[in-house]
């Protein structure tokens, strides 16, 4: 279980301190799928980095199973927007990374994961020979091999085309249902947030804080075209439009 209490985070900037996250409160049960959505600068990626242990300069409590997070580790898998594979390793060696494929148990698990992320036949391929979606699946398999308690995904499908993205979303749900890993998924795509999450956390910038948390009580697999999906999407969008837009000039990428 992940517990976040009174989390505050400030960045030092030339023009003075910038509050990136203000008073974040969040409880995530084991095995839940939570999506985070909000305009750029709302601190959703910063929040993910803190949970990953990549950023430890914060105030407040961030605990995984009652233990404070002090640094990165394999129990907190992280998927970046880019696959970040080692270009000199083949697919299977990328998944194993610092573990040896000579170990029979590792070898068997790697083979199972290749099956799970549907990359059979590409074991010996180098990252440069893979498409974006395939490379991202290798990154997911690499994280899953370590049996993470929690998987943190920072806009993982943001760079993919629409068809591949849809496919990857379905693949991720499959993986989640098979592995029962807790998922924290950051996105700027409204459909993606509603399609994937059991809960959608809506975040607001300046300073970054949680605006609302919406439960998505739809059974999986969800139909994007279904009436209830559209109703929930409108509900989230309704919440979303209350988010004050920053002045046009400061608006970055994202929504």
């Amino acid at each position: 279980m992940l517990t976040i209490e009174r989390l505050n985070k400030t960045f030092a900037a030339p023009a003075g301190a910038v509050v990136a996250l203000s008073n974040i409160q969040l409880q995530v049960e084991r095995g839940q799928f939570i999506t985070f959505i909000g305009p750029s600068g709302c601190g959703k990626s910063t929040l993910l980095k803190i949970v990953a242990g990549l950023d430890t300069a914060y105030e407040g409590t961030v605990e995984l199973n009652g233990k404070s997070i002090t640094g990165p580790g394999v129990d907190k898998g992280f998927i970046f927007q880019e696959p970040r594979l080692f270009p000199w390793l083949t697919v299977e060696k990328n998944i194993a990374a610092n573990l040896s494929l000579g170990n029979a148990q590792v070898r068997r698990q790697v083979e199972e994961l290749i099956e799970l992320v549907r990359l059979k036949g590409f074991e010996k391929a180098y990252p440069k020979e893979l498409s974006g979606g395939m490379a991202q699946r290798v990154a997911i398999a690499r994280a899953l091999l370590r049996k993470p308690e929690i998987l943190l995904l920072d806009e993982p499908f943001g760079a993919l085309d629409a068809f591949t993205r849809t496919h990857m979303q379905e693949a991720l749900l499959d993986i989640w249902q098979n592995s029962k890993t807790t998922m924290l998924f950051v996105t700027h795509d409204l459909d993606e947030a509603v399609f994937l999450g059991e809960k959608v956390v809506i975040m607001n910038p300046r300073p970054g804080h949680i605006r609302n948390i919406i439960n998505v009580d739809l059974p999986y697999p969800r139909k994007r075209t279904g009436v209830s999906f559209q109703e929930l999407r409108s509900k989230v969008l309704g919440e979303f439009e209350k988010v004050e837009q920053p002045p046009l000039l400061d608006q970055g990428a994202g929504i």
């Binding site: 990953a52 640094g71 990165p72 580790g73 394999v74 907190k76 898998g77 970046f80 970040r84 610092n98």
Partner: peptide, 11 residues
């Protein structure tokens, strides 16, 4: 960026 990955994978 790859260095960050090795931190997470606890190299």
């Amino acid at each position: 960026k790859l260095y960050e990955v090795t931190r997470i994978l606890q190299y």
